[in-house]
Design a binder for these strands. Structure first.
Lengths: 141, 141
DNA sequence: TATTGTTATACTCTATAACTATA
DNA sequence: TATAGTTATAGAGTATAACAATA
């Protein structure tokens, strides 16, 4: 097992723990994971086309219709027609949606305790190594 | 933003990319994510109690009944009564289940390209930092 | 012709609550 | 009394296929 695989093995454990954190954050706002995931993708104030949400969530476009339906019913997002391409609808968070989105991000933003416990010097080394690893390619597989 | 949070920010991107990899691996074997997750937890040859699977999947025990039902229907696992506590059923992978489980693990085991691309020395530093961060506490939040 | 979003369908996941058997 | 697993139920996610509107 190479050091890279050993590092990856450790990371997978972290990944699993963080999934619980995400589930808890979503549940706090009575959102299903997919709804929370969609809302958190709405970074841009211009809104995001629905097919782009589907791509980021790695699911079929047909699912996004229902997910957005429920977010819209709760007043968290609105559908807005695109002027340049009338097929496209942009999903824009409402003020309430922005609040919830930010709260979700805030809850996920602070680093896991183990990382925060490292010395500042070690944190910098870790950050720089990760930046180097993730630079360029998507970093996936 | 502290170096720890910057590192965590980078890691969250990696986490998202790896979710796609997991979904792809599960789909390759016609397994739903929860089914693949359950099967991959069956590390021990003695099998795992159902409530333990529920705990690891962070879901209610009632869900595990159905998940195991479907894995069992496909010949991937079997239920085995526990001798010491007759309330408990251990879920044991069949030979076929072991094959699929190992294939899933194999597909997730190799490190993301970005990490594998690091020099061996850097990989070791990364591994050691992660080991230090994840040692002791669960590392969650 | 291809793409965007919707709808219909079937299957699965998920939590909650009530139940049985066992501890 | 408490715990393990099941069942019933309701709501939601998911992929597939077919569709209308638009490009």
């Amino acid at each position: 097992m190479s050091p890279a695989e050993e590092a990856w093995d450790l990371l997978r454990g972290l990944l699993f723990a963080e999934r619980r954190r995400f589930l808890g954050a979503a549940a706090q706002f009575d959102l299903h994971p997919a709804q929370a995931g969609a809302l958190m993708q709405l970074d841009e104030h211009e809104g995001l086309p629905m097919h782009e949400i589907a791509a980021r969530l790695a699911c079929d476009s047909s699912n996004v219709t229902g997910i957005v339906d429920r977010l819209e019913a709760r007043g968290l997002v609105t559908r807005r027609a695109c002027e340049r391409d009338r097929r496209v609808k942009h999903i824009v968070p409402t003020p309430l949606g922005l609040e919830v989105r930010d709260a979700l991000h805030a809850r996920m933003a602070h680093a896991p305790a183990g990382i925060a416990r490292l010395s500042t010097a070690d944190q910098r080394v870790l950050r720089d190594l990760l930046a180097q690893a993730l630079r360029g390619a998507g970093g996936s597989a």
